[in-house]
């Protein structure tokens, strides 16, 4: 990026780049930051009934949330879900891309099958997987037919166990087993997209480079680790951001598939916020949830931005 400094344009042109992105910046300033400011302001008020009440109450909405069983569960679930979802989607997407990239027959067919779930809406995905992972019907019927003992069938999204279940605050910390079912559904939907992105990346890696390494006696694994993976780095970066943005806001799919779940094992802040705001009319509390979600995001995205921008500058 530093190289652009060498370029010399006629002076009158120097402003053009800025002018070209100005409309976008203004729109974002209003629609994103203006509304975030509004939400932040509401989160500090007492607007917890239908009647708009903008009395300032400080951080009491936040204080309530942090000692709320449901919200504590939500925070745990979001962190666990985001990590599982991203790792699984990226891993599986990369695997699919590597498989499809092997000059196979009917490549287009396989590609289309893997990418097809993305065409469905989250609500449809949620409903279908709710059926498939239903512990009394669905996939368990098949497992049973294959000889699994009835008592040992997975309970999928109705399981209330949390592994390892260290008690922290009011809740148990660990991985809620029920979330794994949700991860399966989301990976089904999104890994095709990861595959497509990686496929584009893989095709961009020059064959000579790989061949040269192989000639030098590098194993396939070394070629993968030393040449392919680094080249895919920017794609992984974009994917992480895109998938995080999906996972932190996930709402439709969970709403359709599991709801909050018994003991809130599959609840996420998005669902809580929607229910508390529009069913319970606790606008201020809903706004506080939104602000905490944004805070979580910034913890994650600011380091990413710093590192990726540093890379760009070097």
């Amino acid at each position: 990026m530093t190289r652009t400094k060498h370029s010399r344009l006629p002076k009158s042109d120097a402003l053009i780049p800025v002018l070209m992105i100005l409309p976008s910046l203004i729109a974002i300033a209003i629609f994103v930051y203006g509304f975030i400011a509004w939400t932040g302001y509401i989160s500090l008020t007492d607007w917890n009934t239908l009647v708009r009440n903008l009395d300032f109450v400080g951080l009491s909405n936040y204080a309530f949330l942090f000692q709320d069983f449901r919200f504590q569960s939500d925070l745990r679930n979001t962190v666990v879900f985001t990590i599982l979802f991203i790792v699984a989607t990226i891993g599986f997407g990369l695997l699919l891309a590597m498989l499809v990239d092997r000059r196979i027959r009917a490549e287009a067919l396989f590609r289309n099958i893997f990418i097809f779930p993305m065409a469905l809406s989250f609500i449809v995905t949620g409903v279908v997987w709710q059926w498939i992972l239903n512990p009394t019907t669905g996939v368990n019927l098949i497992l049973q037919a294959l000889g699994a003992a009835k008592g040992h069938l997975p309970k999928w999204y109705i399981s209330t166990s949390i592994v390892p279940g260290i008690s922290g605050g009011q809740i148990e910390l660990g991985i809620p087993i029920a979330l794994i079912a949700v991860v399966i559904a989301t990976v089904w939907q999104m890994s095709g997209f990861a595959m497509a992105m990686y496929l584009a990346g893989l095709r961009g890696i020059s064959d000579e480079l790989k061949e040269a390494a192989r000639v030098d006696g590098a194993s396939e694994w070394t070629v993968f680790r030393r040449i392919i993976l680094p080249q895919l780095h920017p794609i992984t970066g974009s994917l992480v951001i895109m998938l995080t943005h999906i996972s932190l806001k996930i709402f439709d799919l969970i709403y359709a598939m599991t709801g909050p779940g018994a003991m809130f094992v599959t609840d996420v802040p998005g669902v809580y916020m929607f229910e508390t705001t529009f069913r319970g009319n606790h606008y201020a509390q809903g706004a506080a949830i939104a602000m905490i979600m944004l805070l979580l995001v910034s913890l994650l995205i600011i380091p990413y931005l710093k590192s990726s921008l540093k890379e760009g500058a070097s």
């Binding site: 809903g286 944004l294 931005l305």
Partner: peptide, 17 residues
């Protein structure tokens, strides 16, 4: 960075404004 941050805003919270 500021622009990118914008995609993480939960849309439910900004419906009313």
């Amino acid at each position: 960075g500021l622009m990118l941050f914008g995609m993480f805003i939960p849309y439910q919270s900004i419906l009313i404004p």
